[in-house]
Simulated scan of single mutants.
Amino acid sequence: MAGNRPKKSADPVTQPALADFKVGVDNVIFSVDTAQNRLLALLVMRQEEPFLGQWCLPGTLVRQGESLEDAAYRILAEKIRVKNLYLEQLYTFGEPGRDPRESPDSYGVRYLSVSYFALVRFEDAELIANGVSGIAWYPLEQAPQLAFDHNQILKYGYQRLRNKLEYSPVAFEVLPDVFTLNDLYQLYTTVLGENFSDYSNFRSRLLKLGFLHDTGIKVSRGAGRPASLYRFDANAFTPFKDKPLVFI
């Protein structure tokens, strides 16, 4: 009987094709010019389409057999010479359509950006202009419209930098081996703004934590009283490493 015939199964739901990815690395490289109280970001001008002649973050596509971190260090080495450097992975940006080279059909190549952020000493950083018509430090508040979604990456990197300063010793990665507390305070105020803490509270809190070593050496700068030189004691900081420490 017709009523006993097995029902035909419904057509399987068509699944989207798997994406074919190219992976790039984009570096948000910050530096602090404490002499002029400026937080700077390194930008380069694109030499090819898309966005020919437009400013962007230093970046590269990852090569065969190359790790993400190696690619990040490679692009750093191609753009800047510096001794003291702090680098860490930031975030992966992969929204469809973030790169105009992506094809609108489901079989097109997608472009992912694994971003890193770096903090370098401004005084020691030497920019490399080989083969680049434009490379410059831009004050963060004066950053132009960047290629791709790099303004978003830059904003995300700035927020990460602010957070790192609040709970980690990242500042000591880029300070000289010995420094005054005012040097340290100037770095913090440049990144976080002048109203984050007054100097006396900042000084008192950090000295109580016990990982700044007074070298016993004083330095004179201008007409003020000589200032003590301190050194960051990594061993003394070890007990704080996995605690929710707040510096400020």
Results as ranks from 00 to 15, higher is better:
Glu102Leu: 13
Glu102Ser: 13
Glu102Asp: 15
Ser103Met: 08
Tyr107Gln: 10
Val109Trp: 08
Val109Cys: 02
Arg110Ser: 15
Leu112Asp: 11
Leu112Met: 08
Leu112Tyr: 06
Ser113Val: 11
Ser113Cys: 13
Tyr116Arg: 01
Ala118Glu: 13
Ala118Pro: 04
Leu119Ser: 07
Val120Asp: 03
Val120Cys: 10
Arg121Met: 03
Arg121Ile: 06
Phe122Arg: 07
Glu123Leu: 03
Leu127Gly: 06
Leu127Met: 15
Leu127Pro: 11
Ala129Val: 15
Asn130Met: 14
Ser133Lys: 12
Ala136Glu: 15
Ala136Asn: 05
Trp137His: 07
Tyr138Pro: 08
Tyr138Gln: 15
Leu146Gly: 02
Leu146Asp: 00
Ala147Leu: 07
Phe148Asn: 00
Phe148Ile: 03
Phe148Thr: 00
His150Gln: 09
His150Met: 12
Gln152Pro: 09
Gln152Asp: 09
Gln152Lys: 10
Leu154Val: 03
Tyr156Cys: 12
Tyr156Leu: 06
Gln159Ala: 09
Arg160Gly: 04
Arg160Tyr: 04
Leu161Thr: 02
Arg162His: 12
Arg162Trp: 01
Asn163Asp: 11
Leu165Arg: 05
Glu166Thr: 14
Tyr167Ser: 14
Ser168Leu: 05
Ser168Met: 07
Pro169Phe: 10
Val170His: 03
Ala171Glu: 05
Ala171Thr: 02
Phe172Lys: 00
Phe172Arg: 05
Glu173Asp: 14
Glu173His: 12
Val174Gln: 00
Val174Tyr: 01
Leu175Lys: 01
Pro176Ile: 07
Pro176Asp: 10
Leu181Met: 07
Leu181Ile: 02
Tyr185Lys: 01
Leu187Asn: 03
Tyr188Asp: 11
Leu192Gln: 11
Gly193His: 15
Asn195Ser: 13
Asn195Glu: 14
Phe196Arg: 03
Ser197Ile: 04
Asp198Val: 05
Asp198Ser: 13
Tyr199Ser: 08
Tyr199Asp: 12
Asn201Phe: 11
Asn201Trp: 08
Arg203Leu: 11
Ser204Gly: 10
Ser204Tyr: 04
Arg205His: 09
Arg205Glu: 13
Leu206Val: 06
Leu206Ile: 06
Leu209Pro: 12
Phe211Arg: 06
Phe211Ile: 05
Leu212Arg: 04
Leu212Thr: 00
